[in-house]
Nucleic acid binder design. Sequence first.
RNA 1: GCCCCCGUAGUCCAAUGGCAGAGACAACCGACUUAAAAUCGGUCCAGUGUGGGUUCGAGUCCCACCGGGGGUACCA
Length: 829
Amino acid sequence: MSTQPGTEQHEYSFSTMEAKWPAVWEELDVFAPADDGSRERRYVLDMFPYPSGDLHMGHAEAFAMGDVVARYWRLKGYDVLHPIGWDSFGLPAENAAIKRNAHPSEWTYANIDTQAASFKRYAISADWSRRLHTSDPGYYRWTQWLFLRFYERGLAYRKNSPVNWCPKDLTVLANEQVVNGACERCGTPVTKKSLNQWYFKITEYADRLLDDMDELKGHWPERVLAMQRNWIGRSEGAHVRFTVEEAAGRPAKDVTVFTTRPDTLHGATFFVVAADAHLALDLVTPEQHDALMDYREKIKALSDIERQSTEREKTGVFLGRYAVNPLNGEKLPVWAADYVLADYGTGAIMAVPAHDQRDLDFAQAFDLPVRAVVDTGEEDPAVSGVATSGEGKLINSGELDGLSKTEAIARAIELVEAAGTGEKTVNFRLRDWLLSRQRFWGAPIPIVHCDECGEVPVPDDQLPVRLPDDLRGEALSPKGTSPLAAAADWVNTDCPNCGKAARRDTDTMDTFVDSSWYYLRFASPDYTEGPFEKEAAARWLPVDQYVGGVEHAILHLLYSRFFTKVLKDMGLIDFDEPFRALLNQGQVLNGGKAMSKSLGNGVDLSEQLDKFGVDAVRLTMIFASPPEDDVDWADVSPSGSAKFLARAWRLGQDVASAPGTEYDGGDRALRSVIHRTVADAADLLDAGKFNVVIAKLMELVNATRKAIDAGPGAADPAVREATEAVAIILSLFAPYTAEDLWAQLGHEPSVVKAAWPAVDESLLVQETVTAVVQVAGKVRDRLEVPADVSEDELEKLALASPQVIRTLEGREVRKVIVRAPKLVNIVPA
RNA sequence: GCCCCCGUAGUCCAAUGGCAGAGACAACCGACUUAAAAUCGGUCCAGUGUGGGUUCGAGUCCCACCGGGGGUACCA
């Protein structure tokens, strides 16, 4: 075994490499973009981490993926922005602070330091000079600034309404943070509470959030798009006004319903309003008032989980009044029930039990009439108890009779529009984004409440509204009101408008507000004149490749898309979508299950790094499966990866030609493999098939080994060319080993400065290829033919094959399909 | 219930509609070794969940079903 001059190491040792290279990278500053316009720019971003403890296996996977892209693009000659930061506001820091009688910032920044050190060890090729933390005043100043811009545009507003309340964390939750009726964070069943809260009017952007997904198609995972589509929940239908007749001294009142089935108007047999909506109180007659109040109390006591169960018997209470069907004048009894939601549509429905299962269940519970108006050919719902919602001809519907469902929907809309009692409309499932939180460790909402002037925005030049430093430990424990309310010095302030005594808003913003714009801040992280420098953002954004977990498919990604659209409307940016392409890495499992403390199946990242080395762990993560698939740590072999890395590294020990050797005279067969591998690897990387790139790289290493041991030998120029290609491709996955290999080959200063190898097309073409000859789709012969064989020639050769003639047994040839030079299929009669 | 994704060797995974196997793990055999480890070389292993269809040709496209995973769920 020969050793290159200047290389002292003889055995592969990951710990030696890990000790050596970080200082070199830092010294060379290789990961910061030049940003001088000399090269095309690319922006690759990993979803920034929350600083809870040290990095774990999930981070290791996600960041390995993003780093492959960043390093590949750099080698390809792009000017790459690959920044890193922390989503450092949030509840865990606050809970830790309470436990340790400390300030949340202590825990937060200590964890950030730990994670930053781990990221550096993990060799993430990030531009550390752009590092940001959302809990820094220099950052949240601009979160507040953006809130005020939203406020000015009427996109941030306060309203009193029942909200999701976590009785353990003692804070409100956005709809998106309620999972199966329980708090996303702690699992406690969520209850409803009526509070005056801040909202962002994301519903105003529902159409654009939906329509602009067209430009994401093919670049975002289909399932993420599907989830967003469902979440936005666009539904076409009609608003129809019913007049609730005057009764028991209560005046008549028009009530609008939303329906997707105006064709079934004649099938409406009763009318339901959401029991918890104010409308129910408006409508109820004095005689029924007590019954309604009892019912409201009863449903308030139910948890969300119970309330949402579709198994549950339908309940409700008659309100003592009747609504008039605008199409046929029929009087429908008005009920209040909890199966109608106050905050969807208008909070009132026309009930068509024959064609809606929920209405039918209710009708059967209270003995209300059922009238089918669409003949679907199925059994009468009144008898079967199964509502029919399919296609069919209209019956029992006056002038709609005989029409198809689709025709009847259009005609019914025309009728109510002509009568002035309704119109075609679109309804969305999406609700406004509840953003205020009664917790401490977040960006304070920059509003002052003044007895004289009402809500007064804090002037821009007084931003940031800083969190007080003196609240710590017990003072932060949840009380149902924001801990900030207890900081008298902080709360009491002068009204920016009239100068009189006033109070600060004591809520803080949902941390999803912080993360809805951080990708923009990275373009100019130290900018002090605005959230980001317009020109810098125009240069770098949108993000070309975003990498992160599918758990953010709705929340973070929808909010960020919303922010981007608002910022565009403000004229600060000129694109509609923040993330051009999205890669969702899978989870890291162990033994088929997500790692968790309760299962005791956790795998500690730092232990794995100590045992196998950074490169082996990174390589294992990438090689295990396609990026979007889960990796089961029990199924993979970091020791196998380490073995491969050592094998690749040893090539460098054997290369016996000098740096700068011309490749031209090298072994042709090996050179073909090299250039094929480089070309394939580029295609595979562009397609995101990182795991396959590693397989190709293994082939190249194997071929090179063979060339050294049993082929042209270690001094052949092709062996050097191959080993250099190995080092370059390997640098995407295993930066330490690649650097060491590159250095062994006599190169300086870093493989990061290398270029992706150019492909010599002439080496890709083969002189002869194996053509497959099929008879009736079955392989019967193989022919060595010139690569440029003509279709006619190949057909002749195939038909002349003794194997073919034997198989045909004299049968007529009906057809011959020729795909020169690879395949001939002969179809006998 | 509705929507989305996935079923290929013992395992993880490859395969522009064209020879089912690129790569790896595990297992086994051999070389090296006093022995073991490491290393090197080799061997073994499925006809692609099931049933139809389209096609000269289907793992790949279409339909239905089965199984697994995920999302969502009284959204009118």
